Amino acid sequence: MARITKGILGGFSGKVGTIVGANWRGKDIIRSIPTPSNRPPSEKQMVQQMKFKLVISFLRPLGSIQKKYFGLNSGSKSRINLAVSYTINEAVQMVADVPELIYNKILITKGDLTGFQNVNATPQAGNTISLTWEDNTTQGNAAGTDQVTVICYNKELDSFAVFEAMAERSALTKEVALPAYYAGKEMQVWAYLNRAEEDIACNSSYLGALTMI
């Protein structure tokens, strides 16, 4: 059953015969009900489906970050859509017919804020990571109050450790302590900066694969 949402001349939501009405991004739309296909997917379609499944699974825990800081909403594409599309096209490779992520090509955030200058991450005793970067507050639209976020991922556990707004750009150094269950494990590490107003971020930086000690 369909439901009229704005009176007799307004849009409707639900199914009427062979059409479906909905409100999408503030616009009332009508589309036909797709016809199920009995045709098996082609090899190319199957590869694309595997890539899509891999990327969606990986990015899902980062959704709240990418909704704010991955490019700009573009027409029908949300920031999440843009992040998925970018990752599939730029950061996935096929190895023995199996899709794999290329970690050093992954962008967690994408934006026009001035990024880090010479940022480095090194593992330290006690299951910690030490970050250092250089002062570039005079460059572009950088500010000393820009917030630093560090993201760590372990493939074995398929698990993220996210440290949001854990330092300011002006700090130039920061240590993050990971939970004990990451001890001895390899972590893929990224960092990004966002403005204190939380309206813009830089392109994230990949800091390498670090084994915790």
Rank of each mutant, 00 (worst) to 15 (best):
A2M: 09
R3T: 14
I4V: 11
T5L: 14
K6Y: 05
L9A: 10
G10N: 04
G10V: 02
K15Y: 06
V16R: 08
T18A: 12
T18S: 14
I19A: 06
A22M: 07
A22G: 11
N23V: 14
R25Y: 07
D28L: 01
S32K: 07
P34S: 04
P36T: 06
S37V: 05
S37E: 07
R39T: 13
P41V: 11
S42V: 06
E43F: 14
Q45A: 11
Q45M: 08
Q45H: 08
Q45G: 06
V47L: 13
V47G: 01
Q48D: 11
Q48H: 11
M50D: 13
V55L: 03
R60H: 11
P61G: 07
P61E: 02
G63F: 03
I65C: 05
Q66V: 02
Q66K: 10
Q66R: 13
K68R: 14
F70E: 05
S74E: 11
G75H: 13
K77R: 12
K77L: 14
R79K: 15
A83I: 07
V84L: 09
V84M: 02
T87D: 09
E90C: 10
A91S: 14
A91P: 03
M94I: 15
D97W: 06
D97S: 15
V98H: 11
V98P: 00
P99V: 12
Y103C: 06
N104I: 02
I106V: 15
I106E: 01
I108A: 01
T109K: 03
K110W: 00
T114D: 01
G115D: 02
F116G: 04
Q117R: 12
N118C: 04
N118P: 00
V119H: 05
V119L: 11
V119A: 08
T122L: 01
T122G: 00
T122F: 09
G126Y: 12
N127V: 05
T128D: 00
T128I: 10
T128G: 02
T132G: 02
T132S: 10
T132D: 06
E134F: 07
D135V: 09
N136K: 06
N136R: 04
N136V: 10
T137S: 13
T138N: 11
Q139K: 09
N141W: 03
A143S: 15
I151S: 04
I151A: 06
C152N: 08
N154W: 08
K155M: 01
L157W: 03
L157D: 15
D158A: 14
D158W: 08
D158S: 15
S159K: 15
F160G: 05
V162F: 04
F163D: 02
R169K: 14
S170D: 11
S170V: 15
L172S: 08
T173M: 12
E175D: 15
V176M: 05
V176F: 13
L178Y: 01
A180M: 10
A180Y: 07
Y182I: 00
A183Q: 15
E186Q: 15
A196I: 13
S204Q: 03
S205F: 03
L207P: 01
G208R: 04
G208P: 10
G208W: 02
L210C: 10
L210N: 07
